[in-house]
Simulated assay, not measured.
Amino acid sequence: MNIKQSHIVLDTCCILNFYASGKFSGILEAIPAQVAVTEVVRSQELMTLQQLENQESEGTIYFDKVVKEGLISIVDFESEAEAETFINYTAQMKDEGESATFAIAFHREWAVATDDKRAISFLKKEAPHIQIVSTLEAIEHWSKKSNIDSATLKAALSAIRVRARYQPPRNHPLLSWWETAMK
């Protein structure tokens, strides 16, 4: 995985997938760029992580831990232009998390990690210069960089499929890699 920008902003879906894998820290450490999450996504994310764990605090504590360790930085709007773009994107997309992620990526020229088809289509139209990375690209990169054995990889992918309810689309370039790893 070659990230051309200095930073990559994670959308909610990728955070959930990485967290569900049980290998959240390792995946974040393997990403060859500074990983960021918008304040909008963070505030929504903590509730979703809590639901994943069926406990009120474990997901929140773990997310806070990776932030304190510097594996994820929390970013917010730094200019009126970013805030205005966020409002415009929200009006079009009807999703505040994706809109905040894309507005910041657009203005700072950072890469984005998302799996949402509608969001990807929107971003390609609005900002074709922004690199888009998928869950599978990040997981494949982590598995190669960290020399993950096949049993650990299969367990992580199975957890993503079950806990985060993620299934790669039929046209995903890494679908055959996923299928082979799941055997």
Rank of each mutant, 00 (worst) to 15 (best):
L174G: 01
D76S: 14
W142N: 00
A91G: 09
K94H: 15
R165G: 07
T152I: 09
S99C: 05
E45A: 15
E53V: 10
V40K: 10
Q44T: 11
S79E: 11
V67D: 07
T135G: 05
Y166C: 02
P32I: 04
F24N: 06
Q167S: 14
E84R: 15
T152Y: 00
M47I: 14
Q5S: 15
K183H: 11
K4D: 05
K183A: 03
H107F: 13
W110I: 12
N88T: 10
E84Y: 13
T114Y: 02
E69D: 12
R42K: 11
G70D: 03
A105F: 08
H7F: 06
E137W: 09
G26A: 03
N17G: 14
E29L: 09
I120Y: 02
E58F: 11
H7K: 11
A100Y: 05
A81V: 15
T38Y: 00
E140I: 00
F77E: 09
K154S: 01
I31V: 03
D11Q: 06
S134Q: 04
T101I: 01
E179C: 00
A100S: 13
H7S: 11
N17V: 07
S57C: 13
E53C: 10
A20T: 07
K124S: 13
A81W: 12
F63E: 09
A36Y: 05
K144C: 03
E137A: 10
S6E: 10
D115C: 13
M1P: 03
V41E: 01
T85C: 05
L49H: 08
A151N: 13
I8D: 01
E126V: 11
G59Y: 06
A91D: 12
E80V: 14
W142T: 01
N88K: 14
G26N: 07
I27G: 03
I27P: 01
M1F: 03
W177P: 05
H7Q: 08
V37L: 03
D116A: 08
I74A: 00
L123I: 10
N54H: 06
K68V: 08
S176G: 05
L49N: 11
A113L: 12
E179A: 07
